[in-house]
């Protein structure tokens, strides 16, 4: 039964991916991509990786989908140009054959992996009690590979900076993104009023339980960001201008706390980003809390894009 389910799921993912590539319109392609992300999240559940499934559904399908839809609405025309730049059928056949070879090579490699499988699962689980967290993925993200996660947190800040720097000079310090009129009736207006109170609680809950169960700062932060975007698109919440100090602090708070705790490790533990025994969990939760805020702020700002309207 589960085999049939897996095969159907796999075919659906590949089918939707192919459709996303082949369909002519940009809008259906983006919808196809969102469906692909959600199906992929189901695959992650089947692989027992619920943390990844949550991230894929929230970030890979949801937030990326919103970003792409914003871009589709703004990119107009260019059909003749696109047709002129389309590769000729022989070129496409050659590309298809070469890409097929790459895929085949990967498939063969996947079917001939070494046995027994190397695994760090036992190692990762053994030291969890020292950290006081129950979710091994949080243990990896915050302790064993803490430096990776710190760099990733900094990547988000730089991505926001890079996006802001696309603004023309005269718009620097202005409000990011388009202005949405206030929706006083209709489904969007209702959703934007009813959903955020629930969504904010769910987002904080997902971030909070990340220490012991599937969830964490990225998943929770994305849900919080989605609520902010919903209220913004419905005209109920105005984004602050990029010159706003509060906004800037919200974006950098997480990485700063992360670096601060990392440096503290020199004084109270064995070095950068190491936690003193018995006091690891409070520090991890402190970083997670600050990071949840920064992830949410960064995602809203990345979706909104460069500053466009004078404050």
């Amino acid at each position: 039964m589960s085999l049939v389910l897996d095969v159907m799921l796999a075919l659906a993912v590949i089918g939707v991916a192919g459709w996303t590539l082949l369909v002519r319109g940009n809008f259906p392609a983006v919808i196809g991509f969102v469906a692909y992300g959600l199906l992929l999240a189901l695959v992650w559940v089947r692989l027992g990786a619920v943390d990844v499934a949550l991230t894929e559904a929230a970030l890979g399908a949801g937030a990326t989908g919103v970003l792409l839809l914003f871009a589709v609405v703004r990119l107009r025309g260019g059909k003749a140009e696109i047709d002129a730049a389309t590769p000729s059928p022989p070129q496409r056949v050659a590309a298809a054959i070469l890409c097929g070879v790459v895929g085949l090579g990967l498939a063969v490699a996947m079917l001939n992996l070494p046995d027994p499988a190397p695994s760090l699962a036992a190692e990762a689980t053994r030291h969890l009690p020292l950290l006081g967290v129950g979710n091994p993925i949080t243990g990896v993200l915050m302790a064993y590979r803490g430096l990776d996660t710190l760099l990733e947190a900094v990547v988000l800040v730089f991505a926001v900076l890079a996006i802001w720097s696309m603004a023309p000079d005269r718009r620097w310090g202005a409000i990011p993104g388009p202005l949405f009129p206030v929706q006083s009736s209709g489904p969007l207006s209702l959703l934007a009023r009813v959903l955020p109170p629930i969504g904010i609680v769910v987002g904080i809950h997902i971030a909070w339980v990340g220490a012991d169960a599937p969830g964490g700062k990225f998943q929770g932060g994305t849900i919080l960001a989605a609520m902010g975007i919903l209220a913004w698109v419905a005209g109920l919440w105005r984004l602050p201008p990029v010159a706003s100090r509060g906004l800037r602090w919200a974006v950098v708070a997480g990485p700063l706390v992360f670096i601060g705790v990392g440096l503290l490790g020199f004084v109270i533990a064995d070095g950068f980003l190491s936690y003193p025994p018995g006091f690891a969990k409070p520090l991890i939760l402190l970083i997670e809390a600050a990071m949840t805020l920064s992830v949410a702020a960064a995602i809203v700002l990345m979706v909104a894009g460069p500053p466009e309207r004078p404050a």
Binding site: A49, S119, I137, G139, V155, A159, I163, A298, V303
Partner: peptide, 26 residues
């Protein structure tokens, strides 16, 4: 592939997804 799911590659994928989102936005 192991007896229990290995958390290290999963954590890497989560990191990767977030970075992929930032790269897509840019």
């Amino acid at each position: 592939r192991g007896a229990v799911a290995d958390p290290v590659p999963q954590a890497l994928v989560i990191t990767g997804l977030v970075v992929a989102f930032a790269a897509t936005a840019l």
